[in-house]
Design a protein around this nucleic acid. Structure first.
Lengths: 216, 216
DNA sequence: TTTGAACCGTACCGTACGTTACGGTTCGGC
DNA sequence: GCCGAACCGTAACGTACGGTACGGTTCAAA
């Protein structure tokens, strides 16, 4: 038995299995049966149970595997001027929008939400820790650096981040989770990210000389 | 057969059945079996199928029933000064936060998200239409009245509403859907609503003389 | 009083799926 | 070459649940 505890990294063969799970999940959440996974990954069900314990263990390993693929670099740079801060925030926003609107993320969030309804597994917490809270922990140091550099003004980095989160995500995540055929092109993500960062600066820029921005 | 088409209102007996569904749903999403509903509502399964067609029909009727209970009044008033606009926006925000953090709404959104994964029913669309889009259609007239009264400045009411939606909801909905034990007291909802409306005015107030607000 | 529609409770059926068991194959170590 | 571990493919098991059938009861209309 391996890959069931959250610390062990899956072997290459196990990664192939987890990618098969992701494929099936994207193709339709209800197609994810153990038999289908075994067939798609060309492995036996016995092996699945040996490696992952049970169905929930397989799902948890899949979530962690996807999270490890999506983790982007930390945007810590030496000189932080207004331009660099804006670029980093826009990069954060664009990356986040790209992730939450991807078919893989939608499928994983759906199964995690489903499991959260019956508290028999901790999939929801895993997704939260690798999504919402992970990006929070990566973004807050940047916000605090911006404050230290005299570019931003706020009392609580957590609250500032939550505002940023809301300005960027808006209604996107709930809409895609509920099946709204919302398509976010790369250009739209770029534009929405800039817009959100503009709004964020309007709310939190230190000094307050920047004119307000209303339209796209 | 009745209550299956979206226009017929459920009879009193049927409402009792739908309330039983809501109860079971809140107690744990996986407990919602047709047998459990029949037992809880003291009715026969045959009646359930006669009234609602199948399991999905029962769920759809439940969503519509809950939506009909939650619909609040429209905030259209004659004289719209800055104070009235602010009050109305805060009332909208507080009501929305209260709804999305309620156990009933969480449970219903979870089953709708689950169903959206396998496109065999339109629960997701029903929830979107009665939630996200319903509040949008109710709020946009208020925003446009505010603009007509010279209190707000924006190009697109839909975009302004989406910003409002993000500032109010932030990370609340995804967190509760994923099982985060986030508790929103009435006082917290009140405070967060005021804060969100403050931020909204900072972004969209016409004229722009208001000082920016950073802290809680 | 009769009758029939509506409904309750329960037994029943078919199926899907998680889980286990097992025979056969591959392959690295001795 | 031999052994055992790991693994594949498939069959089998148990159960949960959606959906149906049916006998018994209530009750209102004729």
């Amino acid at each position: 038995m391996s890959a069931t505890t959250e610390n062990e990294a899956p072997t290459e063969r196990q990664q192939a299995v987890l990618d098969a799970v992701l494929d099936l999940l994207v193709e339709g959440g209800d197609q994810l049966t153990m038999t289908a996974v075994a067939r798609r990954a060309s492995c036996s069900k016995e092996t699945l149970y040996k490696w992952f314990g049970d169905r929930d263990g397989l799902l948890a390993a899949t979530v962690r595997w996807q999270a490890s693929k999506v983790r982007a670099g930390n945007y810590d740079r030496q000189k932080l001027d207004a331009e660099a801060l804006r670029d980093s925030l826009e990069a954060f926003a664009a990356n986040w929008l790209k992730v939450i609107s991807s078919r893989t993320s939608i499928a994983l969030n759906r199964v995690a939400v489903s499991h959260a309804a019956s508290a028999r597994s901790n999939l929801g917490r895993i997704v939260l820790d690798n999504g919402r809270f992970a990006i929070g922990e990566r973004l807050k140091p940047l916000l605090e650096a911006g404050r230290a550099a005299g570019l931003l003004a706020f009392d609580d980095a957590e609250e500032a981040f939550r505002s940023f989160f809301g300005l960027v995500g808006r209604d996107v995540q709930i809409r895609v989770l509920l099946g709204d055929p919302l398509k976010l092109s790369t250009a739209a993500i770029e534009r929405d990210s800039k817009h959100a960062v503009d709004q964020f600066f309007t709310l939190f820029e230190a000094g307050g000389t920047r004119p307000k921005i209303h339209s796209l």
